[in-house]
């Protein structure tokens, strides 16, 4: 018999470490950046989780509510009960993806964009973000000076001592295939590759169902504003 969502959630290392019991003092929400700009309240989130109710948890995992947090952990510093709403969010997001429930919310679907950008960069290059992918098209806020840096990359990076795409120690070096292979193996052995596959697979299900090709789906989840 498969485990309930509640059981799985409460077995997660982040819930084990991050959930004691909430007294609703509101210190977390008062400093939470997400609470300031979204209709979101980390204290309410913790209260919902504490109900230990299967239906409530399932609804949470399918909703936008778990995707507002910026994981800054400002909520953790002062909680008088030693809770960490941020850690609980990590557990919820993980479970939501593992169970394929993230596709039921607009913000959850954005994980496909994260997978393709950051996820691809990690295994493909060994960096979470890499210079070549930091285009003005994807990141217009980087500004005209960044554009100029990109245009003159070899000169400028050389001047500051970078090892751009070189196979040696230094910033922006090309990470060797053997090291990338070890990283991939780690992902395979620990279930990291499996998580990637689930996000990919579930997202493809949506693409198929909604008749979207990969590029337009990516652009939709990457750029379309969500309320």
């Amino acid at each position: 018999m498969s485990k309930s969502l509640v059981d799985e959630l409460f077995e997660d290392v982040h819930v084990r470490h991050g959930l004691e019991a909430c007294i609703n003092c509101g210190m977390c929400t008062s400093v939470c950046p997400a609470a300031l700009v979204y209709d979101y309240d980390p204290r309410v989130l913790v209260n919902l989780v504490e109900k230990r109710d299967e239906q409530t948890i399932e609804e949470l995992l399918k909703s936008d509510y778990i995707w507002y947090c910026g994981e800054c952990m400002s909520c953790t510093t002062r909680c008088p009960r030693n809770n960490s709403p941020g850690e609980i969010v990590i557990a919820l997001r993980h479970l939501s993806q593992r169970k394929g429930l993230f596709i039921h919310s607009a913000r959850g679907r954005q994980q496909y964009a994260v997978l393709k950008t950051v996820g691809g960069s990690i295994l493909g290059k060994g960096y979470c973000v890499y210079f070549d992918d930091l285009t003005l098209e994807r990141f217009p806020e980087q500004g005209p000076t960044w554009d100029w840096v990109r245009k003159n990359r070899h000169q400028i990076l050389n001047k500051v001592g970078a090892a751009y795409k070189e196979v040696k120690a230094g910033p922006m070096r090309k990470i060797a295939e053997s090291d990338l292979a070890e990283l991939k193996k780690i992902f395979d052995v620990t279930g990291g590759s499996e998580l990637y596959e689930i996000i990919e697979e579930k997202s493809r299900e949506v693409m198929k169902k909604e008749g979207k090709d990969e590029e337009s789906y990516f652009n939709e989840v990457y750029e379309s504003p969500v309320k």
Binding site: N24, G26, M27, T29, S30, A35, R43, V44
Partner: peptide
């Protein structure tokens, strides 16, 4: 401070 009764920071 959060006004917890109104869920408002």
């Amino acid at each position: 401070v959060e006004d917890t009764l109104l869920s408002r920071p």
